[in-house]
Write a protein that binds this DNA or RNA. Sequence first.
DNA 1: ACCGATTTGCGAATGATTTGCAATTGCGTT
DNA 2: AACGCAATTGCAAATCATTCGCAAATCGGT
Lengths: 141, 141
Amino acid sequence: MITPAQRYERFLTDLKAAGVRLTEQRKVIVKVLAEAHDHPNADELYHRAYVLDGSVSLSTVYRTLRLLEDHGAIQRHDFDAGRARFENADTDHHDHLIDVDTGQVIEFRSERIEKLQAEIAAELGFDIVRHKLELYGRRRG
Amino acid sequence: MITPAQRYERFLTDLKAAGVRLTEQRKVIVKVLAEAHDHPNADELYHRAYVLDGSVSLSTVYRTLRLLEDHGAIQRHDFDAGRARFENADTDHHDHLIDVDTGQVIEFRSERIEKLQAEIAAELGFDIVRHKLELYGRRRG
DNA sequence: ACCGATTTGCGAATGATTTGCAATTGCGTT
DNA sequence: AACGCAATTGCAAATCATTCGCAAATCGGT
């Protein structure tokens, strides 16, 4: 079980290894991402980072998010159109179930679905690069 | 096998039945949608409609798209973030495979995946309201 | 054809994200 | 420990897709 602190260290090590300059702002943003247990959007990340270090700007949050995404360190989602949401990519792959009433995001993983997807793509003559599976559901009353 | 002309007629009949006013612009936009074999975005729809009738504006395209979506006549997708794409909803349900190299969108349907999704949601205590499954793949060389 | 409510086009407003630019900063080199 | 400069930053202005306000045009029942 990886801790936020460990995740943070790994983030920094990987970035340094990739030749990325570790600025104060980037470290703070990465720390916020490492500690996030949810799927925050850019603005939420900005606010959390700003509390830790008032020198972080929204622009830099956006620039850093793009940087991290390009490095494969985080993943971008668009559960609700118009606002991207992020999560660190080091955790195991999983899909999302969004509660349409509360907006709550539940993570799950199904080997069978993964397998089935690969089979379907293969039948169509493709190899899957990535996929997006989002279930929008309502809690059973 | 339904023809574009038939689809167009059904669109109009359904809208009229729903008490929607059939303006010139709406008819043109609906016709363009009925004839579309791809997944055009608002701007593309606007251009196609404008050719048929220069009195169509982009605002009205957006308003009509929202209207049609609310009536369940079309479906909105966001394959690429930041730009919504549309398709008529009268066809059978299907998912999408997007060729990451060409952007081509291939439609497919798998009963097994549908079933599996319902099972997973049920295990988590949910009923599926809708879902989004997009495979992004590369053609096998 | 008439009339009132609905819909339209226009341009301005919005909200998320990006960008230009001058000032600041990380970090390899002295 | 200071130097130098390219990379990075904050800010404000720009962008991009989409929405909105409002006066003018239009639908469709009478």
